[in-house]
Amino acid sequence: MQTKTKQILEQNQELRTKCLVYTRVMGYHRPVESFNIGKKGEHKQRIHFKEVKC
């Protein structure tokens, strides 16, 4: 990380909030942080794509 960016993050530490990432699993949404270690690794390997109109 760049030094300037790191300094800005440290100065604003108290303003930062935790971001929860949800993903769809078997028809419902679950937070990724609740996954076991194997499922978290699988989630990181997923390829993200944008669907285009026909």
Rank of each mutant, 00 (worst) to 15 (best):
M1T: 09
M1R: 04
M1I: 08
M1N: 06
Q2D: 15
Q2N: 15
Q2R: 15
T3N: 11
T5I: 14
K6E: 08
I8E: 05
I8Y: 06
I8R: 06
L9T: 03
L9E: 04
L9S: 05
Q11R: 15
Q11C: 05
N12P: 01
N12I: 01
Q13P: 03
Q13L: 14
E14W: 02
R16S: 10
R16G: 06
R16L: 11
R16Q: 15
T17Y: 04
K18S: 06
K18F: 07
K18I: 07
C19Y: 12
C19A: 11
L20M: 15
V21N: 02
V21L: 05
Y22N: 03
Y22V: 02
Y22F: 09
T23C: 04
R24T: 07
R24I: 06
R24F: 05
R24N: 06
R24P: 00
V25K: 01
V25W: 02
V25R: 02
V25Y: 03
G27L: 00
G27P: 01
Y28K: 15
H29W: 15
H29I: 09
R30W: 03
R30G: 02
R30P: 00
P31I: 03
P31K: 02
V32L: 00
E33L: 09
S34G: 04
S34T: 13
F35P: 00
I37T: 15
K39N: 09
K40H: 01
E42L: 05
E42W: 09
K44E: 14
K44T: 08
I47N: 05
H48F: 11
H48I: 11
H48G: 10
E51Y: 10
V52P: 00
K53M: 08
K53D: 06
K53I: 08
C54Y: 15
